[in-house]
């Protein structure tokens, strides 16, 4: 085995992961995402300190939650991030229907993926909260129920994306689902709320510990951090989607070239480049 010649340009092509900040040229990291990632990392450490150590337990409010109030510092930011993510998906979908460019579609897809993760986190932390506050893992509370329905809708969105092979058809159909799914969120929310208010009084008060001082700071800090984490994940998932699309296209081009080579071994056949540009134009 001959050793690979060392690349003088800083080894960016090697992609062997040597060095913390060196990455594959076609990887999903960039200077911007690494800076953001570092900020997120430091902020997370600070957030954990504030949320778990510095901020006091809830002892003053009527249904004192004690240390359990700390779940809220994760639950509320996750909920904020998942609504933001699905909003970005809707924006990406509308952008695609308007401009018909790949980027909008990939943005919608990446945001939906991250949003589903945050929704799952919201549901799990909400359920743990419910177990402590209400004594049951699941309560047919309006917010919890409509979040679950939203979760299922976006799982359907991702399932649709993975079911369609043709990128243009996939982009168009999922853009429409992306818009419809977002329009549906308030309808589900209000119908579930009405439905619940019919059978019992106003829903059990979910969250009324006295929020002030460090507790308020922890909550707001968590929200900012949640949005930053969302943006960081979004950047990576977006580049991931982009790389996957390139790989798909390259595989197609290779296969086409192979078939053409089989079919027309003689004469200077130039159809390949035409077909490629044509395909690009379709995109």
């Amino acid at each position: 085995m001959t050793p690979e010649p060392v690349d003088p340009s800083g080894g960016r092509q090697t992609g062997n992961g040597a060095g913390l900040f060196r990455s594959h040229p076609e990887g999903t990291g960039s200077r911007g995402s690494r800076i953001l990632g570092t900020i997120v990392l430091i902020a997370t450490a600070a957030f954990l300190f504030v949320a778990l150590v510095a901020s006091p337990a809830d002892t003053e409010s009527e249904n004192a939650m004690g240390d359990m109030v700390r779940i809220m510092y994760v639950h509320v930011p996750a909920a904020v991030a998942c609504y933001l993510a699905f909003f970005v998906t809707a924006v990406g979908s509308i952008g695609y229907l308007w401009k018909r460019t790949e980027g909008w579609d990939l943005l919608a897809a990446a945001s939906a993926e991250v949003g589903v993760v945050f929704t799952a986190l919201t549901l799990v932390t909400g359920s743990i909260w419910g177990h402590i506050a209400w004594g049951t893992w699941w309560e047919w509370d309006a917010r919890l129920t409509s979040t679950l329905v939203m979760f299922l809708v976006y799982i359907g969105y991702l399932a649709l994306r993975s079911a369609i092979v043709d990128p243009v058809v996939r982009a168009k159909r999922s853009a429409i689902v992306g818009v419809v799914a977002f329009v549906n969120v308030p309808i589900v929310h209000y119908s579930v709320e009405w439905w619940r208010s019919l059978h019992q009084g106003p829903t059990i008060s979910r969250f009324d510990p006295t929020i002030d001082g460090l507790k308020l700071f922890a909550l707001l800090f968590g929200m900012v951090l949640g949005i930053l984490v969302f943006l960081w994940l979004l950047m990576h998932r977006f580049r991931m989607q982009y790389a996957a699309a390139r790989l798909e296209a390259r595989g197609l081009d290779l296969a086409l070239a192979e078939r053409r080579a089989e079919g027309a071994p003689v004469s200077g056949f130039t159809g390949s480049t035409d077909a490629t540009t044509e395909k690009e134009a379709v995109r």
Binding site: V149, G156, A159, A163, I176, N184, I187, V188, S191
Partner: peptide
């Protein structure tokens, strides 16, 4: 939307039923 997909039969209920939840309730 789901026409012409191989997984149509299982995908359609997954996409459709959560959207129709408000109709069922109302």
């Amino acid at each position: 939307l789901s026409a012409g997909l191989r997984v149509r039969d299982s995908l359609l209920p997954l996409l459709l039923l959560p959207i129709l939840a408000p109709v069922l309730i109302a």
